[in-house]
Nucleic acid binder design. Structure first.
Lengths: 268, 268
DNA sequence: TAAAATAATGTGAATTAATAACAAGAAATT
DNA sequence: AATTTCTTGTTATTAATTCACATTATTTTA
């Protein structure tokens, strides 16, 4: 649903379009003012205020007095933020993060949903273990102690894989793990699009007291390249929408708890 | 390695001291509130407001609603202190990269000069091993096979350190290593500002057929926290300016080759 | 050292910005 | 076409910010 780019704002834009424009403006301007945006978009200040509020929730920018500036985090990676199911992933991330308690050792798997968990962590008295360099670097900004697994860096997923990573895991035990998946189905359980990550996921699941799977609703009843776990191995699924009946039945059968993360049950 | 935080401010601070403290707080906290600072320093909000105003003028921070955050510029400076000697570092990086031949296994150390090497790599038929997640991620963009060491992620240097990283190195041998250093002196050889990286550097040097040290001229005849190698361990120093006489003599004595990287001898 | 000048802080009123609640209008769904 | 959801504007309320000025430290210099 893309519309032609117009430099002079002639037609009314919808919230999403405005929000994208605001980000674009910020790339060149360092700070924008509500009054200024109000004129540009020909809407009231209240409306741009609401736009900015949304963008602030996504940690894309920081509010200043009367305006906003680009968030420092934002500058790290512009690209993968405006992606698919972004809002859903943020909600999932918030709920997932809220499960974590102080002094725990947490494994966070590589993935676009899991990185949202890392961005929502509030306790600094935890140790995070991850196979994703990006997550590790972001956690460093939050001053959260982090152990990064070593190994071959896989180009498509930007996660470390292979024998080194597997060996690194050998001596570790986690209180909780948050695993990403590219598919979940009642027949084949959890699956992943990347073959090389398979072994890491299996090992992490073995070594975690509690296994949480984060997966957005677009992946319900779909299978990906390789299956890495059945329902008996996992404790909880965190997603953004209610599961279809069959999947729900299977989860109940194997005692897998379901959490639906939505605007309402997210307490930031 | 956390330092004890004193919440109760014993003696009254003057504006300069408060302002320094505010910056310090921000390095750990991402955002401070006026109300909070007012309590910490036992002054009115108006006073901290004036402090923040001063700091804002200096572009050290940005004011938010009810508080302040570290200026994005400032934050980047903290992490990427690349502004200093930037051109020199790029030259050094280009020359260093030109030494690499196809099918080699190369170790690239974490550092602001070494990251320039990774940006200049032209052969894809090499394998790079590194302790720096940032370097690994950049190499991935260039489609260069990369092995990232695992371990604890050190906040100040963004490199992995500790027993996991050391174990990971155990089975490896490199054709060449490019090591960063924060000081080089005729008396104490090469030194580094971060203690935890010490062991990694030592192990890498042991395991490399050829050891290259990249260091810019601002660090000549200076010593940093810990010394990690004498001249007999290294094969080459790549820098941006001629070495002072004494240093040069020492290098000759130990057969250390010197390359001066400048605009002219860099063929991009 | 005392007096004067300057800088720093606190106070409260005036101004401006932010929030919340609600109603009207547009878009999307059924 | 009717209903629901989303978006926007309006207004009242609350909170934050600025401003002006009085008071108190601190520094300067006679």
């Amino acid at each position: 649903m893309k519309k032609g780019k117009v430099h002079k704002q002639e037609k009314k834009l919808n919230p999403q379009e405005r929000q994208q424009e605001i980000i674009k403006l910020l790339k060149n301007k360092s700070e924008v003012k509500f009054s200024e945006l109000s004129k540009i978009f020909r809407v009231t200040e209240m409306t741009v205020r609401r736009d900015i509020e949304k963008l602030e929730e996504k940690k894309l920018l920081y509010r200043t007095v009367g305006g906003a500036i680009l968030s420092p985090i934002k500058q790290l990676d512009l690209r993968d933020r405006m992606k698919l199911m972004m809002d859903e992933k943020i909600h999932i991330g918030k709920v997932a993060a809220s499960l974590i308690k102080p002094n725990e050792a947490i494994f966070i798997d590589s993935g676009t949903t899991t990185i949202q968990i890392s961005r929502q962590l509030k306790y600094k008295e935890i140790t995070v273990i991850t196979n994703a360099p990006k997550i590790a670097l972001e956690l460093q900004e939050l001053r959260i102690p982090t152990i990064l697994l070593g190994g071959q860096l896989e180009g498509s997923t930007l996660s470390v894989v292979g024998p080194i990573a597997e060996t690194n895991l050998k001596d570790m035990k986690f209180h909780r793990a948050f695993i990403a998946a590219s598919g979940v189905s009642s027949n084949n359980g959890l699956s992943n699009a990347n073959y090389f990550e398979l072994q890491i996921k299996k090992l992490v699941i073995e070594r975690s007291q509690e296994v949480n799977v984060v997966i957005d609703s677009s992946k319900f009843e779909s299978d990906s390249l390789v299956s890495f776990a059945k329902f008996d191995k996992i404790d909880r699924i965190i997603t953004d929408r209610p599961l279809p009946q069959k999947l729900l039945n299977t989860c109940e059968k194997y005692n897998v708890e379901i959490i639906i993360a939505s605007e309402s049950n997210v307490y930031s």
